[in-house]
Amino acid sequence: MSDDPTTEPVNDSADTGGTAGSNTTAPSTTTDKAPKWEGDFDPDKAARLVANLREELAGVKSKLKTREDAEKNDLQKATERGESLAHELNELRRKDAARDYGIPASLAKFIIGDSPDEITASAKALADELGAVKPDTDSLPGRPKPRLKPGHGTGDDASGFDPVAVAKAARGY
């Protein structure tokens, strides 16, 4: 470098990675040619400027990549969650169709299809092949059936009444 202080940069922003305020280049133009240097060309100053610009570009690229990855991860998470919910919905539809057509739960895995119509058709075909009987939806299993006869209470069992057994029980036999 020369001893002339006028050739030294006025702003040290080129040393810190920034380019604002640097008087080493002419104002940038939108042409395809590189801007002209003012004054004498200093290779050391140009090398520092290029190195700082490359570091700044690498930092911007890494921030962009980080942001894209974060958005991509959110999108992938949402997609995976949607696929999981769709699979769970189809499993519930298969179990429901198996119950509706009297197919044992262990055979519900043989019901195929992705839409409700396909699942219903598959369940019906499987029930026809198995000879399964569609369960009666009017009566629930385990629910007692009322015996309604006039003159009897709700807890009385008219067919199970034995007067001789009652008399023996009362006398202590």
Rank of each mutant, 00 (worst) to 15 (best):
D156T: 15
G102Q: 00
G102D: 09
D162Q: 00
G142P: 10
L53T: 00
A58K: 13
L49D: 05
P135Q: 06
E91T: 09
I112V: 12
G82I: 08
D117V: 14
K134F: 06
I119P: 05
D100A: 09
E55H: 00
M1Y: 09
P43F: 01
A70F: 05
T19W: 06
D156S: 14
E8M: 13
P116C: 08
A125C: 00
A108C: 10
E83T: 00
D69M: 11
F41I: 10
E91R: 11
K36D: 08
E71G: 08
G160V: 01
D114M: 11
D96A: 15
T7W: 03
A167H: 05
E80A: 10
K168N: 13
Q76L: 13
I111G: 12
K145V: 15
F161G: 06
E8C: 07
I111P: 08
R94M: 08
L107P: 03
E118D: 14
G102A: 05
K168E: 15
T79N: 14
H87T: 06
A158M: 05
D44L: 15
F41S: 02
D138V: 13
E129W: 04
D114V: 08
G153C: 04
G151T: 03
F41D: 01
T154F: 06
S84M: 11
G21R: 04
R93G: 10
P27E: 07
P35K: 02
K33G: 08
L140D: 06
A97C: 01
G142V: 12
D12M: 14
